[in-house]
């Protein structure tokens, strides 16, 4: 739509005032002004910190001179850094897969509950996602605690354990992933449930008439109809899971032997606890290009499918 300008009514006013008045009458100007608070907010809370983090990542340790990409060069030579990369990928990929699977299965269960009682189930299943993770993780910490572990107490009568839930690399990784899945699965569930509700019932009826099995209905009807929501949810969750901090920080602090560190917790260890802010910034920025490229591809695919529809 073309912008509409309204001629100024104030005849005889100076030119500049008249053109300002014209500018203010444009729809694009009004739209810009209305969006200005949000733009300012994003500039102050997102763009500035991000830009500052990039700047910090290019300083030397004592923050006295610009060293360009030397911090990244240094990181690439560290074994611990590559272990953090491995651990972050393992954590994010495993957790997202399990969250998606559990979310998908539970969404189907909830979808099949009669609508009268469905709301209660939806509410209850969302609880893990609604509680602030730092708080719920504290409860998990007690469940895993060496002295008071409820899990070990339950295993004891069966002659099992005690399991060092957070003290041995394998169990510690399992524990942090488990808590992340517990927190994040309800988000997938609610997104998939919304997607399921939007699949037209006629498609299932047609498939049933054609003699499609349960699996074929899932594969040929449900999944294609949910493809966009699955892609967006998975992308969003991957980014958030890679950026996770609170669960690992509360449960293991990256121990044992740094084998549960993620980029966020390792950046904190280096930047704040070890007072090497430039190196910490470099660690925290490491995943940005990889996730940005992944986001571009996934979102482009979604847009393409959207235009095909």
């Amino acid at each position: 739509m073309a912008d509409i300008t309204v001629r100024s009514a104030s005849i005889g006013s100076p030119d500049s005032r008249s053109s300002l008045h014209k500018l203010m009458q444009r729809k694009s100007t009004i739209a810009f002004l209305m969006a200005l608070p949000l733009i300012l907010l994003i500039t102050v809370l997102v763009a500035y910190p991000a830009g500052y983090a990039v700047y910090l990542a290019m300083l030397n340790k004592s923050m006295t001179k610009f060293v360009w990409f030397k911090n990244f060069d240094f990181l690439f030579t560290r074994d611990t850094f590559w272990m953090v990369v491995y651990q972050s990928c393992l954590f994010a990929i495993t957790a997202v897969i399990f969250k998606a699977l559990i979310g998908f299965i539970v969404a189907h269960f909830v979808h099949n509950i009669p609508s009268k009682g469905q709301r209660k189930w939806r509410g209850m299943l969302l609880v893990p996602w609604v509680i602030p993770p730092a708080m719920s993780t504290l409860a998990w910490l007690w469940l895993f605690d060496p002295s008071y572990s409820a899990f070990n107490w339950l295993l004891q009568p069966f002659g099992l354990g005690p399991i060092p839930w957070l003290g041995e690399t394998g169990w510690a990784r399992f524990s942090v992933i488990l808590v992340n899945v517990w927190v994040g699965a309800p988000f997938f569930m609610i997104m998939y449930l919304a997607a399921l509700k939007s699949v037209p019932e006629q498609l299932y009826e047609a498939a049933a008439i054609d003699g499609a099995t349960w699996w074929q209905r899932i594969w040929y009807v449900t999944l294609p109809m949910m493809r966009n929501i699955i892609a967006i949810t998975a992308l969003f969750s991957t980014i958030v899971t890679f950026a996770n901090f609170d669960i690992v920080r509360v449960l293991t602090k990256g121990d044992p032997l740094n084998t549960t560190h993620l980029f966020g917790t390792w950046a904190f260890r280096l930047g704040i606890e070890s007072n090497d802010i430039p190196l910490g910034s470099a660690v925290s920025l490491f995943m940005v290009p990889i996730l940005a490229v992944a986001a571009v591809f996934i979102l482009r695919d979604i847009t393409k499918r959207g235009s095909e529809v």
């Binding site: 002295s147 008071y148 005690p162 060092p164 839930w165 957070l166 003290g167 041995e168 293991t252």
Partner: peptide, 16 residues
């Protein structure tokens, strides 16, 4: 030492 010692934080010993 307890098998969980590598995961001890500053409150684990107090709790024990």
């Amino acid at each position: 030492l307890p098998p969980d010692a590598p995961s001890y934080d500053d409150s684990s010993n107090n709790r024990a």
